[in-house]
Amino acid sequence: MPSPKPLPLELSDQERRVLRGWSRRRTASVSLVLRSKIVLACAEGASNSHVAQMLGVSRETVRKWRAQFAAHRLEGLMDRPRSGAPRKITDEQVEAVIAKTLDQAPPKGDTHWSTRSMAQAAGMSQSAVSRIWRAFGLKPHIVQTWKLSSDPQFVDKVRDVVGIYLAPPENALVLAVDEKSQIQALDRTQPVLPLVPTVPARMTHDYVRHGTTSLFAALDIVSGSVIAQHYRRHRHQEFLRFLKLIDEAVPKHLDLHLILDNYATHKTEQVKKWLLRHPRFHLHFTPTSASWLNLVERWFAELTNHKLRRSTHRSIVELERDIRGWINEWNKEPKPFVWTKTADEILETLAAYCTRINDSGH
């Protein structure tokens, strides 16, 4: 007995336009292109057998997608999202891994958990442990160093330095000053191999030393420009020479506020006597063990990352000339480092740190 003749499909102009677009789109899935062609052919009045023969598919396939479109229109041609494989790791197992990571010492006297040791302890795969650690931001293999200042005037010095950053005095220049000592002139034992596609630049791990130099730098916190000078040593004599250089470089009508660390050469009797004779100089000292408060350290990091870490030099003169060239280029388009945290925010963060330390039981 012949099967009943299927009802013809009627398409709106919008549906016809969308189906034609799908059937021609190169980025569409092969299945969506085929379903669109089936519906378009059926809408022209062709039978299921004729459409199947024309498109090289079975009559059952044509019947299925004709019915799907008739019932659900364009959405009926879309693939439904798949549920995926059932979850194998329970919430309790995830919680156990996190608890072990945070609270339990690793086995065999190790200093920290690895994915291998945790997988063995938790009875799951290393990849599962890795996914759990990533999801909760746990990195047992990484440790960061920190140190709390024991300076009895810590609070006062923080407020003084941060106050200068956030509200520089009028008719004055604020300079963050420090020395980067023991900069080594290093040359690799073999030529550096340049960057090529798929291969990074390469250099030997060993090197030849050709001496050291010290760089004294004063960073203008407003403009970002730098006054700098090389000296082969970093005693109070060199510091005094650098102060005189700053005095000559800055217009006389401006007061000078220098932010410094507590290095002994900054506080010798010779320095104090010179400062008494030059009253426009005002020194602001960061707390001990708090070099992060001196913005020039941020500039030294730029110098290290962009110039010193991967450069090679065969003499101190060559090193100093190279650094001077880099500083000259910096000063053509200086970039200030903007301080944003208030003294209260810094002190609140450190207070929370102290609370965590006291509560840790260590």
Rank of each mutant, 00 (worst) to 15 (best):
F242A: 08
L243A: 06
L243V: 05
L243N: 05
L245Q: 13
L245S: 02
I246V: 14
D247N: 14
D247L: 12
D247Y: 07
E248C: 04
V250N: 03
P251T: 03
K252D: 15
H253V: 08
L254D: 10
L254F: 14
D255I: 01
L256I: 15
H257I: 10
L258G: 01
I259S: 06
L260V: 14
D261H: 07
Y263F: 12
A264H: 10
A264W: 02
T265I: 05
H266M: 10
K267M: 10
K267V: 12
K267A: 11
Q270H: 12
V271A: 09
K272L: 13
K273N: 12
W274H: 12
W274V: 06
W274Q: 07
W274I: 07
R277F: 08
H278E: 11
P279T: 12
P279Y: 07
P279D: 12
P279C: 03
H282W: 02
H282R: 15
H284Q: 15
T286Q: 09
T286I: 15
T288E: 12
S289V: 08
S291L: 07
N294A: 09
V296I: 15
V296Q: 11
R298A: 11
R298K: 11
W299I: 00
E302A: 00
E302V: 08
T304G: 05
T304M: 00
N305L: 05
H306G: 06
R309C: 01
R309N: 09
R309I: 00
R310K: 09
R310T: 04
S311P: 00
T312V: 10
H313M: 01
H313V: 01
S315C: 03
I316C: 14
E318R: 05
L319D: 10
L319H: 07
R321K: 06
D322N: 11
D322Y: 03
R324G: 02
G325E: 13
W326H: 05
E329M: 02
E329T: 03
K332P: 00
E333M: 01
P334W: 06
P334V: 02
K335T: 13
K335L: 04
K335F: 03
F337A: 09
F337R: 14
T340C: 08
A343F: 10
A343V: 11
D344A: 14
E345I: 00
L347S: 02
L347F: 02
L350E: 11
L350H: 01
A351K: 08
A351M: 04
A351G: 01
Y353F: 08
C354K: 14
C354M: 13
C354Q: 15
